[in-house]
Design a protein around this nucleic acid. Structure first.
Lengths: 117, 117
DNA sequence: CTATTACATTGACAAATCTCTCTTCAATCG
DNA sequence: CGATTGAAGAGAGATTTGTCAATGTAATAG
């Protein structure tokens, strides 16, 4: 998966020569890398990672008001983190009356997970 | 893995009552979350993710001079990204003469990978 | 209708990021 | 030695991020 090119390990430099010849950049995989990096970036904050963890381990949907007391940040800050996860496609939410229930979209993590393992 | 607490889905609000009672925060898993978030954050850039991809798929060690032409950024910028990956523990490097060879430390990705799958 | 409650949005600000150019360092060649 | 080369470091600038207080919005209770 991802980039595909030959990179021969260097052993010796010929006198006066450049170390490496330019290599073609396989633009094909850039999209995929950008997509996965986006997911990784969204997970790149302890609070957001724990949010995803809680939501995943609860399989069902979890009310925001139950998430807020788990973290030592204000409610708007948590809302901001949830929005970030939503933008990244990792979670989605559903409003029921006053409450907003969040849940993980497992397929969003699949590509990164597969690449990592 | 990670956070451990009960979160009962809410269905109705009792008059005049708060939505949720405070819940104990299991500080135990914070370290782990921080660790994994650190790794995810380091992977949260398309260039760095592709760097890791190239290095992983080459199993061996890859010279920086072979990496630079793969990306449309300057050599110091790439060096900065490699340093970031090194700080996160994802890669390590080895100097041989003029060249610096980078390689992935697979164990650094293991925890996050396991959590994701 | 009015008050309250759950959640999101806005605006602000410090800190971190990503990128560059310029410079430095270390190793090799001649 | 002096010149050259691969790679890292030091600023600097623009953008993004994480956080909060204050406000806005929609729904429910009374």
């Amino acid at each position: 998966m991802a980039i595909d090119l030959e990179l021969a390990p260097k052993s010796k430099r010929a006198a006066g020569e450049r170390c490496c010849e330019p290599v073609v950049y396989p633009d094909v995989q850039r999209e995929q890398a950008t997509r996965m990096a986006g997911v990784a970036k969204a997970l790149g904050d302890p609070i957001r990672l724990q949010l995803v963890d809680v939501l995943r381990r609860h399989a069902g949907k979890v009310c925001v008001c139950e998430l807020v007391p788990l973290f030592e940040v204000s409610q708007p800050t948590l809302s901001h983190h949830l929005a970030k996860l939503r933008t990244a496609g990792i979670v989605d939410s559903e409003r029921r009356g006053l409450w907003a229930y969040y849940y993980v979209r497992p397929e969003a993590l699949r590509e990164l997970s597969a690449w990592l393992s």
